[in-house]
């Protein structure tokens, strides 16, 4: 188990990734997740080469049938010849920081297909429903030859809208029978959708969810926002395959808008801006964490003794931390 002999430098992995070698792709994603400084140069190289794939963000409340739908959708995409990468993001346990990542189980139909890559990621305290390295993983898969990349996140509240700032096309999934007729509204996800999907349409109560959602959209909740694209509502059943042709058309249609329209161009700039800000935030947090570590105890004791208030001491701590770099 000599670690030195088996360690492959990240830069060496880049060509192997470009050749579509799965173990190299997988390892590079691990290094991106770990935030290894050694991997930064390679990730930079990868970013330069990336940008071809259609990135679909897919979100919905737990129990909406997202994973099963992703599985069926991936099978359709495969039938068109596209290689499909899936990044399934699940929340980490707030207590232990660990996680059980269960989405793969609902995608077992894809488990033998070499043209499908599934990667599970834990949010690890990252807000917004995405993991820190999700976008790195997308780039790596892009360079690895995956033409469509689906990011699946659990939508539970307002925070989950991050997905819309990362994907070319955002799909919001609702399901009948989960209590609230349209969970997307409650979860604040109505506005972010480029495509709405109502899953489980083999159920008798699905019709109502469909009509409610359509009505809600025509009522024009920010109706004028997307003039070049009219947000469709697609009813599907992963059980009997209903609606997937329509869904494929909707995705293809939106892809054209996303890639070739002015709106799409602006969106891509916004995505880049978001990526840049997030990355900068992370760098800043890392630097701050490193720099303030030796000072924190002293500041905490001063606060405890009421030698200052939280606001002024925090200001001092920030100033002192960055003074050191």
């Amino acid at each position: 188990m000599a670690s030195v002999s088996t360690y492959v430098p990240s830069l060496e992995l880049v060509e192997r990734i470009a050749n579509g070698e799965i173990s190299a792709i997988a390892r590079m994603i691990s290094r991106a997740e770990a935030g290894m400084p050694e991997a930064r140069e390679a990730l930079a190289e990868i970013y330069q080469r990336a940008g071809r794939a259609h990135v679909i963000g897919l979100t919905g409340v737990p129990g909406s049938g997202k994973s099963t739908m992703v599985s069926a959708l991936a099978a359709r995409l495969r039938a068109t010849g596209s290689k499909v990468g899936i990044v399934a993001v699940d929340p980490s346990s707030p207590y232990s920081g660990g996680s059980i990542l269960g989405d793969r189980i609902r995608m077992t139909d894809l488990s033998q297909d070499a043209g499908v890559y599934i990667r599970s990621m834990a949010t690890r305290g990252n807000m917004g429903g995405m993991a820190r390295a999700t976008m790195d993983a997308v780039d790596i898969l892009d360079v690895g030859g995956f033409e469509t990349i689906i990011i699946e996140t659990v939508g539970v509240g307002q925070d989950e809208v991050e997905i819309a700032k990362a994907a070319d096309t955002t799909v919001v999934v609702s399901a009948p029978g989960l209590g609230d007729e349209i969970q997307a509204i409650k979860a604040g996800m109505l506005e972010i959708a480029d495509v709405h999907v109502v899953s489980k349409c083999d159920r008798s109560d699905a019709h109502r969810t469909l009509t409610d959602l359509k009505q809600m959209l025509t009522l024009g909740v920010k109706g004028g926002k997307k003039s070049e694209w009219r947000v469709p509502v697609v009813g599907i059943s992963s059980f009997d395959g209903t609606g997937f042709d329509e869904l494929m058309k909707a995705l293809e249609g939106h892809r054209a808008v996303a890639l070739h329209s002015e709106m799409g161009r602006q969106r891509r700039v916004a995505i880049a801006g978001f990526r840049l800000t997030k990355t900068a935030e992370n760098l800043l947090m890392e630097r701050f964490a490193r720099a303030c570590a030796p000072l924190t105890l002293d500041f905490a004791q001063r606060l405890h003794r009421h030698e200052g208030d939280p606001y002024s001491l925090a200001g001092e701590l920030v100033a002192a931390s960055f003074g050191k770099e």
Binding site: I100, G102, I105, R106, T108, F239
Partner: peptide, 9 residues
């Protein structure tokens, strides 16, 4: 079809 469970832990 076949049954597939959603496991709990």
């Amino acid at each position: 079809g076949t049954y597939r469970e959603t496991p709990v832990y």
